[in-house]
């Protein structure tokens, strides 16, 4: 997968360099933005609720048994905000949106639509890549904020109803507020912004380099998702290390 990492970096660089035309492409950015939201909002809610819930379930009974019920809100709060929401949502979006981007651009490549754009002197980076990367970079952090809130609520619900915990909502959120700082949330949101750039660039790159006709589209989609996930997990470590004070 690292044979074309140079190309991906180059595409990312060119996309950054084309940012000044982003305003001209705002309609396409909005279109992509709403597509991302429509396609994933419900999934994000369900996933985030259960992630928060299972985290409370795994840690809560043990903490309560050791006389630390007040730690449940904090642990769920921090783990969801700093790690689970950004990473899980990025993986979800890579599978749901990154794949669709690679498939759409890949089919445009195979059916010579990209060649047609070039003959009309329309830059495919401005027309296709930039709106997708920008929309992704805006949408994913917003989805992650949403996911963090739902995740906390999922943890609270499980902590309240599970008979080994029975922690009231007010107590849980009070503990969470004591432990979680705004910078923890900002930390997770920042990571998700970086993941969004990875998903957008990798998926568009795979689409643009689709080869060997329609069969190549399937291969591009798979590679877009797998490469995005690998890079997300690697960058998760690097970014976490960087953000550690």
């Amino acid at each position: 997968m690292f044979d074309n990492i140079g190309q991906v970096v180059l595409l990312f660089w060119r996309t950054l360099a084309s940012l000044p035309v982003a305003w001209r492409q705002r309609e396409k950015v909005f279109e992509q933005f709403f597509e991302i939201g429509n396609a994933s909002l419900l999934m994000v809610c369900v996933l985030a609720f259960f992630i928060g819930g299972v985290l409370a379930l795994q840690t809560g009974p043990a903490l309560v048994a050791r006389g630390l019920p007040s730690a449940v809100g904090g642990i769920v709060g921090i783990a969801v905000a700093k790690e689970l929401a950004p990473v899980m949502m990025a993986i979800l979006i890579a599978g749901r949106i990154g794949s669709a981007m690679a498939a759409e651009i890949g089919s445009m490549r195979v059916y010579q639509e990209i060649d047609a754009l070039r003959t009309m002197n329309i830059n495919p980076i401005h027309y296709l890549v930039l709106p997708r990367v920008v929309a992704m970079a805006v949408a994913l952090p917003m989805l992650v904020v949403f996911a963090i809130l739902i995740g906390w609520f999922g943890g609270a619900t499980v902590a309240a109803v599970n008979r080994h915990m029975m922690i009231p909502y007010a107590a849980y959120f009070g503990d969470l507020r004591n432990m979680v700082e705004l910078k923890d949330v900002a930390n997770g949101v920042f990571k998700s912004f970086c993941f969004a750039l990875i998903i957008g660039t990798v998926s568009c790159h795979q689409g643009l380099t689709t080869m060997d006709g329609p069969r190549g589209i399937g291969r591009s989609v798979t590679k877009a998702v797998v490469n995005s996930i690998i890079l997300i997990v690697m960058f998760d470590y690097i970014l976490t290390r960087m953000l550690l004070h």
Binding site: S107, M108, Y111, Q112, D115, A116, L117, M120
Partner: peptide, 19 residues
Amino acid sequence: IAAKYRMALVFQSGALLNS
């Protein structure tokens, strides 16, 4: 060249943007 001269290719398949 692309800015200096206007050129067009009508593709064998048409190559219309399907979206």
